[in-house]
Amino acid sequence: MGNNSSWFFILCSLFVSASASANVQNKVTNNPADELVATINTNRTASNSSSLYSNPGLACIALQYIKAYQGDCSVVGGPNAKKPDNSLFAETFAPNCAVELSTLTQITGRLLGCQSQYVKPSLAFTEILMKNGKSVEILQSRNHTEVGAAVSGSDGGGPYFWCVLFSNGRSNSSFVVEGGVAKISRPGCFSGASDDCSGAIGLSRRLNLWVIVVSGLISLGYVFRF
């Protein structure tokens, strides 16, 4: 029985340690979409292009843009690439974000990528979004004045979509949200949302945590049995 008790305390310690690790990761991550915008602006200024205003209304629309793909990674890029209809911006995206229709502004560029596994924002930028010379051209365009970024899994798991929308709107007068706060929707994170967001990757972390716990319970059952 003493041996079983030892295993029980080890398992409890393991659970607490895993939970603490997840909490630390959440604090470090905060909002991956904000990190992506920071990476974009760093790369723009390094190439002598202006830094872009992070517009939360545009960013919320970027998350809605992701959701329009309904988790189908196969239609992002390549010969089957598709784009949501322009009409969806006024009919669906803006209302879902509480963006005032009269403030919708031209989209001057977009970067969209998708893959099965979640990666850090810096890697998403270099390995997923910067796929070719066209992507670099879009990134460095001097037509952009503002940016909105979003990341989301499908129902909290893979595949993971990354979306960046650029616009030539004027700060504080384009993609204006009612009440000053864009609607938060899950799963997913968007830049400028003023909240610590790990919604895009939270499920994968919880699954990893439960794998540890379940494995420990199996081991504990083995000890009790023998």
Score class of each variant (00 low, 15 high):
residue 194 S to V: 05
residue 184 I to D: 01
residue 18 A to M: 09
residue 214 V to E: 07
residue 30 N to T: 11
residue 127 E to K: 14
residue 193 A to G: 10
residue 106 Q to L: 12
residue 221 G to S: 13
residue 191 S to L: 06
residue 146 E to P: 00
residue 181 V to G: 00
residue 61 I to A: 05
residue 124 A to T: 04
residue 133 G to W: 07
residue 73 C to R: 08
residue 36 L to I: 03
residue 107 I to S: 01
residue 216 G to L: 01
residue 181 V to C: 00
residue 74 S to V: 04
residue 99 V to I: 11
residue 118 Y to V: 06
residue 4 N to I: 13
residue 114 C to K: 03
residue 105 T to G: 01
residue 219 S to R: 00
residue 183 K to E: 07
residue 118 Y to Q: 03
residue 80 N to T: 13
residue 116 S to Y: 12
residue 92 T to H: 09
residue 169 G to N: 06
residue 208 N to S: 15
residue 124 A to W: 01
residue 50 S to A: 15
residue 110 R to W: 11
residue 200 A to Y: 04
residue 30 N to D: 13
residue 113 G to F: 02
residue 107 I to D: 01
residue 29 T to N: 06
residue 109 G to M: 09
residue 156 G to Y: 03
residue 181 V to E: 04
residue 101 L to V: 08
residue 36 L to F: 03
residue 34 D to E: 13
residue 120 K to G: 07
residue 165 L to D: 01
residue 165 L to I: 07
residue 123 L to V: 13
residue 68 A to P: 07
residue 149 A to T: 10
residue 90 A to E: 12
residue 218 I to P: 01
residue 135 S to R: 02
residue 108 T to K: 08
residue 8 F to D: 00
residue 183 K to C: 03
residue 96 N to A: 13
residue 175 F to M: 03
residue 5 S to G: 12
residue 208 N to E: 15
residue 160 Y to S: 00
residue 163 C to E: 09
residue 203 L to E: 02
residue 1 M to R: 11
residue 196 D to A: 13
residue 220 L to P: 00
residue 177 V to E: 03
residue 209 L to F: 15
residue 1 M to A: 14
residue 173 S to I: 10
residue 218 I to K: 02
residue 118 Y to I: 06
residue 55 N to T: 10
residue 41 N to L: 08
residue 112 L to P: 00
residue 147 V to T: 07
residue 178 E to R: 10
residue 7 W to T: 00
residue 77 G to H: 06
residue 143 N to Y: 09
residue 98 A to I: 03
residue 1 M to T: 12
residue 196 D to V: 04
residue 96 N to C: 05
residue 161 F to T: 01
residue 154 S to C: 13
residue 55 N to K: 02
residue 81 A to Q: 12
residue 139 L to H: 07
residue 31 N to P: 07
residue 89 F to P: 00
residue 207 L to D: 10
residue 204 S to R: 07
residue 79 P to D: 10
residue 152 S to D: 02
residue 103 T to C: 07
residue 171 S to P: 12
residue 158 G to S: 12
residue 53 Y to A: 11
residue 62 A to C: 07
residue 202 G to M: 04
residue 116 S to W: 14
residue 146 E to Q: 15
residue 121 P to W: 02
residue 120 K to P: 02
residue 46 A to H: 12
residue 135 S to C: 09
residue 151 V to E: 05
residue 159 P to E: 10
residue 50 S to N: 13
residue 178 E to P: 00
residue 96 N to H: 10
residue 74 S to W: 04
residue 39 T to L: 12
residue 49 S to Q: 15
residue 46 A to F: 11
residue 45 T to V: 15
residue 59 A to W: 01
residue 126 T to F: 05
residue 197 C to D: 07
residue 167 S to C: 09
residue 38 A to Q: 14
residue 81 A to G: 14
residue 110 R to Y: 14
